[in-house]
């Protein structure tokens, strides 16, 4: 037994991981979720807004992290739509605009067909410059975005009227996969006017612990990794759930099933790995 475990081929571990993730997906069960305070704070920040308030929706991620972040992006957009907020989409990652288009297609035109482009939502698209873009929109948004992503000068877009800088938005909703992302939004946008600018964010697991020191002063709420997404979805479901809830609004909740078995496998692997280690020590091999 000891030799078997000691010389375990890593492909066996790979297969175990594949099974741990695949089987729950195929069985399609969804464990229950209860929101933690940090997610509830994010949700309540949006809930506190009034119809017609402006949210700056920054999609700073790419397909490589979509497994974690797509559910958050969908949930954020849905929440803003349910609350009838005005949505201003932007992206600091080159691939971000593709997710803006997905949100338009899968959420807005499907479930909120009354929303009008240019009046209820606008796509400002991607700009190069990372934190340079955040810095500039904090002072002068119109210079950074002379046109929207469709080439319309922003002076011709009704909902851009009287928008001069980031201070004119009620909340920044950021979905972040790394640099540039939530950290830079805190450093440049929130820091430029801590009393005027509110930020809620959804981020990857890797970033999450690094962002905790900003909460709750500089960051009003945070969806940390897929668990944060699932909690937010459960809150949305509780408040705005409808009959035959579309599957895209439960992506995070669904993903908690493979998460459960994957985590248990990880704990098991570390445990068995240590068992082997202590057995080896006892035998004087380590």
């Amino acid at each position: 037994m000891y030799e078997f475990l000691r010389d375990l081929d890593r492909r066996v571990i790979f297969s175990l991981m594949a099974l741990a993730v695949a089987v729950p997906i195929l069985l399609q069960f969804t464990p229950p979720e209860k929101a933690t305070p940090i997610v509830r704070d994010a949700f309540e920040t949006i809930e506190a807004l009034d119809e017609g308030d402006r949210v700056y929706m920054a999609f700073d991620f790419d397909p490589a992290s979509a497994g974690e972040l797509q559910p958050m992006a969908t949930a954020f957009v849905r929440h803003a739509c349910e609350k009838k907020l005005k949505i201003y989409f932007t992206a600091l990652w080159p691939v971000g605009p593709q997710f803006i288009k997905n949100a338009e297609r899968d959420v807005i035109s499907r479930d909120f067909p009354d929303m009008v482009y240019g009046e209820d939502f606008v796509d400002l698209g991607f700009k190069t410059g990372n934190e340079g873009v955040i810095k500039l929109v904090s002072n002068d948004l119109r210079t950074q975005y002379p046109q929207d992503a469709r080439g319309t000068p922003i002076d011709d877009i009704p909902m851009m009227e009287s928008v001069a800088s980031i201070r004119d938005f009620d909340v920044i909703m950021n979905v972040s996969a790394g640099y540039p992302g939530t950290k830079e939004w805190v450093q440049y946008a929130v820091a430029s006017a801590p009393d005027d600018v509110k930020l809620v964010a959804g981020c990857t697991g890797v970033q999450a612990p690094l962002l905790y020191p900003y909460y709750p002063q500089q960051l009003s709420g945070l969806l940390a990794a897929i668990k944060g997404a699932a909690e937010y979805e459960s809150l949305l479901l509780g408040k705005y759930g409808r009959e035959n809830e579309p599957g895209i609004y439960q992506e995070g909740l669904r993903r908690m099933a493979p998460q459960l078995s994957g985590h248990i496998l990880m704990v098991g692997l570390i445990f068995v790995g240590n068992l082997v280690y202590f057995m080896a020590r006892k035998r004087g091999e380590a």
Binding site: V21, I25, E68, G205, P209, A225, I226, G262
Partner: peptide
């Protein structure tokens, strides 16, 4: 330790996304 836990969480979510 917490960072490790969250990293694992992230990686598994990405894999689940691909399997889905």
């Amino acid at each position: 330790g917490a960072a490790f836990g969250y990293t694992v969480m992230g990686r598994i979510a990405l894999l689940a996304g691909r399997f889905e």
